[in-house]
Write a protein that binds this DNA or RNA. Structure first.
Length: 329
DNA sequence: AAATGTGGCAACCGCCTGCTA
DNA sequence: TTAGCAGGCGGTTGCCACATT
């Protein structure tokens, strides 16, 4: 039944390929083509598994492979495709001629992913991580109408303003310093526990009147299943919780605009320098919805990092768990 | 100069799907 | 029909080069 094994793994060489092995593989494929990886090593005189040969050829020896640093255009394409396709590296590679799925995957994990995290953007959901928002900055912005922010125009409840103000007062410095590692260590179950705690507030403040909708939001998260706990799921939930809990029209629009964080070729210009978010903090006339979150298309890693830090300083946010809403309301 | 830490990347591992005998 | 393999794929590992102490 079935096919015979492709190779006997015993006695086959593993590890880095030597130039001699590469040459043998190249010469064989140039003559016979890359088909039938099962018999290829034997016919080519290689002490390798067919799988290893295929990997070496497709990821390194193929003549149409384009090596070297990724351009900003390629990087932009990767981010955009990843936001649609997820970790489908082969699908992404199909749209980047000369790049292999392995190369794109490595580049994502070593460069893009880290940068997005530093920007306070969830590399899985491509949404801003609300756990990095600095609530005080939002409230300190006189251009942000608080009632609009909270979606409470119809309520206009002064208690809500007391609540918001108390959040500000209760926010401790160490809470702002929550590390990324701590965030990643939180599993979906823990977040759901927190959500259930929030549910206690449901009957006490209309600010959280849509908690049921939040449950629905979470249940719709594609990659989340309670049995399959992972940090990425955690991040996914956090992002959705954040955008929901704020639930204000104005803020929601900001969240949407933040998703357009990637840099586009159409915006390459000398004006595409970093729009300092610190300036926004200092300039009360700056409308919060006009923040420019586009990173410069052309620039150094340092420029990117500078942008990230500015973005991050704006996006820090934490509501202290110890806050007693009963006392406030 | 040596020891240690860190980041990047090639290659391996193991799972999944479709195919074949 | 089905057991089992090939190929494809994403996740992970481990080596190496470079940076830092």
């Amino acid at each position: 039944m079935g096919r015979t094994p492709c190779c006997d793994k015993n006695g086959l060489k593993k590890g880095p390929w030597t130039p001699d092995e590469d040459q043998k593989l190249i010469q064989y494929i140039q003559v016979h083509g890359p088909g039938n990886w099962r018999n290829l090593p034997k016919n080519a005189g290689l002490q390798r598994c067919g799988k290893s040969c295929r990997l070496r050829w497709t990821n390194y020896l193929r003549p149409d492979i384009r090596r070297g640093r990724f351009s900003f255009e390629e990087e932009e394409t990767i981010i955009q495709l990843h936001s649609v396709l997820g970790n489908k590296w082969s699908a992404i590679a199909e749209r980047l001629p000369g790049r292999t799925d392995n190369e794109i995957k490595n580049y994502w994990n070593t460069h893009i992913r880290k940068r997005l995290l530093r920007m306070g953007i969830d590399p899985v959901t491509h949404s801003p991580r609300l756990d990095f928002l600095d609530f005080s900055l939002l409230f300190n912005s006189t251009q942000l109408n608080l009632s609009s922010l909270l979606g409470l125009q119809a309520l206009v409840n002064p208690e809500i303003f007391k609540l918001a103000n108390s959040i500000l007062l209760s926010q401790t410095h160490e809470n702002q310093e929550l590390s990324l590692q701590n965030q990643n260590s939180q599993g979906p179950e823990l977040l759901l526990q927190k959500l259930q705690q929030n549910q206690l507030l449901h009957n006490q403040s209309s600010i959280f009147q849509h908690n049921d909708q939040l449950h629905n939001q979470i249940s719709k998260i594609p990659n989340y299943t309670p049995q399959n706990v992972s940090s990425s799921s955690s991040q996914s939930i956090q992002g959705n919780m954040g955008s929901y809990l704020m639930n204000g029209q104005a803020f929601h629009e900001n969240v949407i605009s933040l998703q357009n964080y990637s840099y586009s070729a159409s915006e390459v210009s000398e004006n595409s320098t970093i729009q300092s978010l610190n300036n926004n903090n200092n300039n009360n006339n700056q409308n919060s919805q006009n923040f420019n979150f586009d990173t410069p298309l052309s620039g150094t890693e340092e420029e990117k990092e500078s942008y990230c830090s500015n973005f991050n300083s704006f996006m820090k946010f934490e509501i202290p768990e110890s806050l007693d809403f009963d006392d406030l309301l």
